[in-house]
Design a protein around this nucleic acid. Structure first.
Lengths: 154, 154
DNA sequence: TGGGTAATCATGGGCGTCAATGGTATTGGC
DNA sequence: GCCAATACCATTGACGCCCATGATTACCCA
């Protein structure tokens, strides 16, 4: 399937360009759109990233709401209206729009944080702090995850 | 499939012309009608936009109402009767009809707001206000979206 | 096992192209 | 013949593409 794993910190040059980690690009290479979809997280100071396939899955999922329903409206505004298609150049870099940079507080460096099906882009220090917080919470709460049975070969 | 993503603010010139964002034109390029379908939103001060394909899907969906039913009547009046086909010129601009401009309160600029399968055209300030409201609500409510399983190759 | 080599990836900067925009000309309808 | 819609053209500014470079990693062979 191809997952987004690990965390990579890359430089943001003075043009606002930043290299998408090669492994992330490899994960996305089979998709129709050669680039990433990025939108502002509506809960944290970071940028959400994914591929076009995931966006289309999101779109399919909203179909369970009726057209013109309020839920449909909100999700659209938060995600689809905010999403940008950032195609990468031949070297694998994307150009980060100004408001995404502002929202995540990016400056010198950007951290690409794998989250499985998707990934996030953080200001490295901010992510470090967030990670520490999550880790300390995990020590207390011991979160669990019900494992789905393996989907046999098919 | 091709989704309408992101938000683009373009100028409305003194003739009432406005460029349809190139990416929107690209998603519509495969369709039969080279232009957009536009009608007044019946819930907000904006213009709804889509391609001919979506119009036909809407038409199919109204079949779930009985012919001559009140719902069928209403939807027809609200959408089909109000919809117009705006084809773009060689530069990719459409001419906005007067009543659409009035309904959305457009003047200098027009914001093309992607909504996945469709898009909307807003007066930029009005959309900003609407978006801020949705965003603040999202911070409180933390909306979630049940993801449909990936439509495996089949 | 260690050194050398080649390939890949991240980075920096210059240049060409296309999209958005504004204006003018032309055509067709009333 | 006037008004409006559309086609044509010209400008500019952002973005995409090309080059070159450095650094790290992976690979190969002695």
């Amino acid at each position: 399937m191809g997952l987004f794993l690990s965390t990579f910190v890359n430089k943001v040059d003075r043009k606002g360009r930043v290299s998408v980690p090669a492994t992330f690009r490899a994960t996305l290479s089979a998709q129709s759109f050669q680039g990433i979809i990025a939108y502002r997280s509506f809960t944290a100071a970071c940028v959400e990233g994914c591929g076009m396939d995931f966006m289309e899955r999101l779109s399919d999922s909203t179909q369970s709401f009726d057209a013109f329903s309020p839920e449909q409206e909100d999700i659209s505004a938060l995600i689809f209206a905010d999403a940008r298609q950032l195609s990468w150049d031949p070297e694998g870099r994307i150009l980060l729009p100004e408001d995404l940079i502002d929202h995540a507080g990016l400056s010198e460096n950007a951290a690409f944080v794998g989250k499985g099906q998707t990934f996030q882009i953080w200001q490295p220090e901010a992510y470090k702090a967030m990670e520490a917080e999550i880790r300390s919470r995990a020590l207390k709460n011991r979160p669990t995850l019900p494992l789905k049975p393996k989907t046999g070969g098919a």
